[in-house]
């Protein structure tokens, strides 16, 4: 019986999530994407523009990106297309590929966090560039409108 309850609740959750207000999802998603951008901008200032006094924050920025990267696939439920959203419909046509790109960002941000913990500046810079190029941009290339 418990199992059935669980299935029923899950099914209800799925359906209701499909009906959820698309606008609100887009608003949340855009907020998270802006957060990524904010952390990336801060990290670029630290690592590429010599703002070394903020280096102690690099770990925090990296962990924030890592934490948010994990939830990317969930932020793009089926049918959450919107006029105001830059998400291309290709996302839902190739969802496994989209998910694997999100996982790439997760892995690369994990590597960046490790590099920050390691403390080697060259390694940090390299991991940061890789994260931007192969994590963020590689997915935007295919799935974000210009």
């Amino acid at each position: 019986m418990n199992k059935r309850w669980f299935v029923a609740v899950m099914a209800a959750a799925c359906i209701s999530s499909a009906w959820a207000d698309v606008k609100a999802i887009v608003a949340y998603r855009q907020g998270v994407m802006k957060s990524f951008g904010g952390h990336m901008q801060a990290l670029k200032a630290i690592l590429a523009e010599g703002q070394k006094q903020f280096q102690p924050n690099a770990l925090f920025h990296g962990e924030a990106i890592l934490g948010l990267a994990k939830s990317i696939p969930d932020m793009f439920p089926q049918g959450s297309e919107h006029r105001k959203s830059a998400a291309k419909k290709e996302i839902w046509k190739n969802f496994p590929d989209f998910t694997s790109r999100a996982q790439t960002l997760e892995r690369l941000s994990q590597e960046f966090v490790q590099a920050v913990k390691g403390g080697d500046e060259a390694a940090m810079k390299a991991a940061f560039q890789k994260m931007g190029k192969e994590g963020c941009s590689a997915c935007h290339e295919k799935y974000r409108k210009d």
Partner: peptide
């Protein structure tokens, strides 16, 4: 080199390619 803009956003679409 990296696609990362000064504001922390990245290139997308054709420019990313």
């Amino acid at each position: 080199k990296t696609g990362i803009k000064p504001d922390g956003d990245t290139a997308s679409g054709e420019m990313a390619k």
